[in-house]
Simulated assay, not measured.
Amino acid sequence: MLTRRLLLAGLGTVAASPTLAQQDDWRQSIREIRFGVSSAENEAAAIARNQPMVDYLAKRLGVPVKIYRVSDYAGLVEAMRADQLEFSRFGPAVYSLGRRVLGDKLQPLFRDVDNNGQEGYYSVVVVRADSPYRTVADLKGKSFAFADPNSTSGYAFPAYFLRKQGFDPQAHFSGTVFSGGHDNSVLALVRGQFDGVATYQVNENSGVVQRLALRGMIPAGATRVIWTSPLIPASPFSTRANLPQGLKDAFVAAMMAMKDEAPDVFKAFTDGQVSRYAPAKHEDYLDVIAVTEELEARRKQKPGG
């Protein structure tokens, strides 16, 4: 059972559109929609990306919409379990955790399709561009950071597949830590605090490193990828099964229409790297669930696990 303290801090509320004449039935019981965002992204960046989407949803759906930041990835599951969130985008490993905790109460709705038609992304091991490290083998005895224990690309996939390739993280690196988020990992790497980190990228033009460089938070070309995982299915936007179907349908319709109805909002929310959304189903994440379950079983086998 999760015991982590949930830290919810609202980023902003938008009033419902006063021009909406016809009220659907679900609006009689749902007076506010809460969308969960993990604190893995820094607050200023989260506001810049999400606030236009909040504005759009409030006008489109006709009820106030609020963004909530949570303390970590597992906080999204806790909030959904407590009926404190209506919608959130879950990383695949967080979705796996959510299904273990919530079962069918957690429902996937849709996921990104990038500009190349790809419905997924990759975990990558990144080093500083001026370092001598060219392969994971070169990081023997070096310091390494994962992002979060419930991150797919920042922990589950690299821990699982590196071990399958003969690099047990606990034995191969001099020490491993959880940085608290992808931004933290890459920023610390560039500052010289770690020799290697695990993060994610969609392609060579889109990912954590590219986003931080675009915002001037790290120099362009400051890092280099030395390892890439198999494809991870794109993170599902998810909801609670106990919500009115009319609300879920309205949310999906609004998000699907955002690119055409509010192209600037869509571009800001997706960093310009998403072409459209596609339906997501539970079966899409069975491989990720298998990876996370094996890691959990391994953890429990350790003394004190």
Rank of each mutant, 00 (worst) to 15 (best):
R5S: 05
L6H: 07
L7N: 03
L8N: 04
A9W: 13
G10V: 02
G12Q: 00
A15D: 00
A16H: 11
L20M: 09
A21R: 10
Q22P: 02
D24A: 06
R27D: 06
V37N: 06
A44P: 05
A45Q: 01
A48H: 15
P52W: 14
D55P: 10
Y56L: 06
G62W: 04
P64I: 03
K66R: 13
R69Y: 15
S71F: 14
Y73S: 00
G75A: 01
A79Y: 14
G91T: 02
G98L: 03
G98P: 05
R99G: 04
R99T: 11
L102E: 07
D104I: 06
K105W: 04
K105H: 07
F110Y: 15
D112N: 07
V113F: 13
N116G: 11
S123I: 08
V125H: 05
V127E: 03
S131N: 15
S131W: 15
V136C: 01
V136T: 04
L139T: 05
K140S: 08
K142Y: 10
S151I: 00
S153N: 08
G154E: 09
Y155E: 01
F157C: 05
Y160I: 07
F161K: 07
Q165D: 12
Q170A: 12
F173Y: 08
G175Q: 03
G175H: 04
S179T: 15
G181S: 09
G181I: 02
H182E: 11
S185M: 08
V186F: 12
V186Q: 08
A188P: 10
V190D: 01
V190P: 06
G196W: 10
T199V: 02
Y200L: 01
V202K: 14
V202H: 12
V208R: 07
R211D: 08
L214T: 09
R215S: 08
A220M: 01
A220K: 09
A222P: 05
V225A: 00
I226C: 01
T228L: 00
A234F: 08
P236H: 00
L243R: 12
Q245E: 05
A250S: 15
F251V: 11
F251E: 01
A254D: 09
M258P: 06
K259R: 11
P263T: 04
A268M: 09
T270G: 02
Y277R: 06
A280N: 05
A280T: 01
K281D: 02
E294H: 15
A297G: 11
K300W: 10
Q301H: 14
G304S: 05
